[in-house]
């Protein structure tokens, strides 16, 4: 059982690390959420006793309730942080029309390059083009929305 849990944690942690190294911010966030889950699983695995659900009174051997309380707290915290980061990425998308880190870097380089007008126009045109493409993609992908 311990081996199985360790391998699961390792796989989740590895996938999370892989995703976090991507350029697409949505993947980075998915990686962050996975990472939190790997940590939660690790806390559960760190419990001192295994048994039935820890509801008292019980005549069975119950599992360690402290790790479950810790995991619940950690889940809530990572939920809150994930919400925050997602809204932040939404702000980035709103400002740059992109969630690709490399693209964001190039936009930033232009912006800090003492307002180089011609280049700024090029970027603006590229932005518009991408905007239009995304519009088409969204329209093609989605039939209905709530």
């Amino acid at each position: 059982m311990t081996l199985f849990i360790s391998i699961t944690i390792a796989v989740i942690f590895g996938s999370a690390a892989y995703l976090m190294l991507k350029r697409d911010l949505i993947r980075v966030i998915t990686g962050m959420i996975l990472l939190g889950n790997a940590a939660n699983l690790f806390i559960m695995a760190a419990g001192l006793r295994r048994g039935r659900a820890p509801v008292v009174p019980s005549e069975f051997e119950t599992s360690d309730s402290l790790v479950q309380a810790m995991t619940l707290t950690a889940i809530v915290i990572s939920f809150g942080v994930a919400t925050l980061v997602l809204s932040l990425v939404y702000r980035v998308y709103d400002a740059h029309h992109s969630v690709d880190l490399r693209r964001l870097g190039s936009v930033e380089a232009v912006q800090s390059g003492l307002d180089d007008q011609p280049t700024a126009h090029v970027i603006q045109a590229a932005d518009d083009a991408q905007d239009a493409r995304q519009d088409r993609e969204i329209a093609a992908r989605q039939g209905g929305r709530w």
Binding site: G80, T83, L86, S87, Y90, D94, D135, W146
Partner: peptide, 21 residues
């Protein structure tokens, strides 16, 4: 308050954005 408020805010923002677009 947190769940409803945060999801409501995102939904509102999405609707506003679609309208702007």
């Amino acid at each position: 308050g947190f769940c409803v408020g945060s999801i409501g805010a995102v939904a509102r923002e999405t609707v506003r954005r679609e309208r702007d677009r």
